[in-house]
């Protein structure tokens, strides 16, 4: 049982790759569009490089649930090396979405993960990040790819949010790079 009308997303990443930030950016953007939200990481004995999970909940109604997410409609894998380490498809329902940062095609990944139903999307987000931001931080391009896979919030709103959050912190050049990475990801993500 889950709360009625709540969209749940699970993010897989490694400590330091921005899974928590991505989960929060999406939630905050949805909030700006009038939704109720939750975004929370799963904390263990974390340090840079360790596999971590983060979660986003989005709903039209206030969200009362305060338990973990076990059946996310969408799973986003930010680091391709996690595919061998974590069961990223765990708990995804049959009509769910699996989005992976990978240079492989959705078809190949579907086979590899034995994920038969639902939709699979892939994007080489690390490459996009390196070419736009100049840093191997695939979390923002994965946000762009996610918006193509699921119409959660508008692309413009995500760009506004990135500007709001990043401009002061990382400067105009890198902020523009991040926005460019979101747009490219949105256009280049492959479905299958």
């Amino acid at each position: 049982m889950s709360g009625k009308g709540i969209l749940e997303i699970r993010w897989h990443g490694r400590g330091g790759q921005g899974a928590k930030t991505a989960a929060q950016l999406l939630a905050e953007t949805a909030m700006d569009e009038g939704k109720y939200i939750q975004a929370f990481p799963e904390y263990g004995p974390e340090r840079a490089g360790a596999p971590i999970k983060a979660f986003t909940r989005i709903s039209d109604e206030p969200i009362n649930l305060h338990c973990g997410v076990s059946n996310p409609q969408i799973v986003v894998v930010i680091d391709p090396t996690l595919l061998d380490a974590v069961d990223v498809a765990e708990g995804i329902p049959e009509d769910g979405i699996l989005l992976v940062n990978s240079d492989q095609s959705p078809q190949v990944l579907r086979q590899k993960l034995n994920f038969r139903k639902g939709k699979v999307y892939t994007l080489d987000a690390t490459k996009v990040a390196l070419e736009t931001v100049g840093l191997p931080l695939p979390n923002t391009p994965m946000l762009g790819a996610l918006l193509k896979a699921a119409d959660l919030v508008s692309l413009n709103k995500i760009e506004d949010k990135l500007t709001e959050k990043f401009l002061k912190k990382i400067g105009e050049k890198k902020t523009k790079g991040n926005i460019e990475s979101v747009r490219r990801a949105y256009n280049e993500v492959q479905a299958g």
């Binding site: 905050e28 909030m31 939750q38 975004a39 990481p41 904390y43």
Partner: peptide, 9 residues
């Protein structure tokens, strides 16, 4: 963590 580290509206 459940409340302290979860972002809410």
């Amino acid at each position: 963590f459940i409340t302290s580290h979860a972002v809410e509206k």
